[in-house]
Computed example of a mutant assay.
Amino acid sequence: MSYVGPDFDPPQPRRSRRRPLTITVAALVPVALVGWLVYEAVADTGDSSDGAAPATATSASRSATASPTADGKRSASSSPTAPTAGGPAASGPLKGKVVLIDPGHNPGNFRHPSDINRKVNIGTNRKECDTTGAATNSGYPEAQFTLDVARRLRPLLQQQGATVKFTQDGDRAWGPCVNERARMGNEAHADAAISIHADGAAAGDRGFHVILPASVHEGAADTRPIVAPSRDLGERIAGSFVRVTKSAPSNYLGNGTGVVVRGDLGGLNLSTVPKVFIECGNMRDSKDAALLTSGAWRQKAAQGISEGIVSFLHG
């Protein structure tokens, strides 16, 4: 998570190219139908060219995908404050447990500067609704990274029997705001919540860190009941993340512990359920960026986060 915007050009829509009609419509129909079926069977929303493919969205989440409006803008067809369901949970040791996954930022945020720049109340003060997030020097955006890791994390938790909810799953044009993200976890009565990010620090700053909520009691914020369980959750995630990914804790924050406490993040300040952030690495460092852009490493990141959450929920 960085508070600077990505320095890459917004993706441009592809222009369709007309080709001469060389075959009849009757011949095209069955071919198109077969092609569509094949696409549906293999479609993948994340970059997984060098690793295990992330789980595809369920039919329920696909039906909630944002649709074009009359003025050409996209708007979520589901309630903007309702967490995106992740499909039915399997029976397992975490049956009955709810996990809220918050993929940081949104790939469409850069198209909506006025929406994401408006200030919202985070308890201690007012802060921007959201940001565009960071990006690697080659232009791989944090928002794409966070969605990919989140989608890989979901089935790992579901296999343990947990019910998994998302704050957004690529089904919104922008956002949600940081206060909405916190509220979604609260209203879901999540047993654990994780916000996934990647940092945008200086080159040479390497490693991951987990952010824990400080003890805040001001305005609408009161984290006192969740400070202890959030620390337990965060320390377990940090430990499993090191073990699975072999990544070192941050060399620029946390004094080598991989754990940082902050009281300035609305997603933590306004949470009433155990919640942490994880900065999986620094997108601006070339060595970290090589990991963050690897599908195989992102799968390990999801596995490390999952094992920490499962350990916490097992107690």
Rank of each mutant, 00 (worst) to 15 (best):
T69Q: 01
T58H: 02
P103Y: 03
S79P: 12
V99A: 04
T81P: 05
G96Q: 02
L100E: 03
T81N: 08
A60F: 08
A66T: 10
S59N: 12
A55L: 07
R111D: 02
V98S: 01
A66G: 12
I116V: 12
K119Q: 14
S63K: 09
I122A: 06
P103F: 05
S67F: 08
A55W: 05
P83S: 08
A89V: 09
A70S: 09
A85S: 13
S91V: 09
L94A: 07
F110H: 01
S114H: 09
T58K: 03
S78D: 14
P93S: 14
A76K: 11
D115K: 05
A55G: 09
A90I: 08
P88R: 13
P93D: 10
L94R: 01
R111I: 00
S77T: 15
P54E: 00
S79D: 15
N125H: 14
T65P: 01
A85Y: 12
P80S: 09
G96P: 02
R62A: 10
G51S: 04
S79E: 12
D115V: 06
S77H: 07
G72S: 05
S78G: 15
S114M: 04
A53I: 08
S75E: 09
G123V: 06
A57S: 11
T84G: 08
N117A: 15
S59V: 14
P83Q: 06
N109G: 06
D50S: 10
G123H: 04
S63D: 11
S75H: 11
D102P: 02
A70R: 00
P68R: 05
A90K: 13
I101L: 06
I116S: 01
T56V: 10
P107Y: 00
T65L: 13
S78C: 12
A57G: 11
R74G: 01
P88H: 14
T124K: 03
D102A: 02
G51N: 01
A89F: 10
T69D: 01
A64S: 15
N117R: 14
S75P: 05
R62C: 04
T56I: 06
P93N: 13
H112T: 11
V120L: 07
S77F: 02
K97A: 07
N117Y: 10
H105M: 06
A90S: 15
G108A: 02
S91N: 13
K97N: 04
I101E: 00
A57K: 08
R74K: 08
S91A: 15
S78K: 13
D102E: 02
T65E: 07
K119C: 06
L100M: 13
G72T: 00
T65M: 12
N109H: 03
A76Q: 15
T65I: 10
L100Y: 04
V98Y: 01
P88M: 11
A52E: 06
A90H: 10
G104V: 02
A53H: 10
T84E: 05
G123Q: 02
V120T: 08
N106Q: 11
L100K: 00
P103I: 06
R118K: 14
S91M: 07
A53V: 11
H112P: 04
P113N: 04
P103A: 11
T56Q: 07
K119A: 13
S67I: 07
G86W: 03
A64W: 13
A90L: 11
S91P: 04
S63Y: 07
G96A: 04
A57H: 09
K73A: 04
T124N: 00
